[in-house]
Amino acid sequence: MVPLSWYLVVAFMLIGLGAYGMIVKRNLIRILIGAEIMGNGVNIALVAFAVYGGVFSYTPQGLVILVIAIAAAHTALALVLMLLYNRRYGHVDLGSPVQAEVK
């Protein structure tokens, strides 16, 4: 049997990896990917806690399914904001030297 701690270690490593992407990267798409990786880590931790903690009723399942659905919606919103940023500044890199040149 795989112990709960193993799942939690993977989940926390994914959260750390996503945090690294969000802190270090300047490209908006990579920042979005980092946020999605963090979301995956959180989902793994939630399901693993629910299954091993003996509370795996329909509540955690329904919760994770709703979280995944909301993740899809916020990704669409983030991509549209990126398109708008690109139309305004001509690129999707935060802190780029040409950022001040508004079209």
Partner: peptide
């Protein structure tokens, strides 16, 4: 960024390994 994320990973991963979670 690397230090911060490594800190998050080490602290939370260490806690996950040390805490007596159920194994089944």
């Amino acid at each position: 960024g690397l230090l911060l994320s490594a800190f998050v990973m080490a602290m939370s991963g260490g806690l996950a390994l040390v805490f007596p979670w159920s194994t089944d």
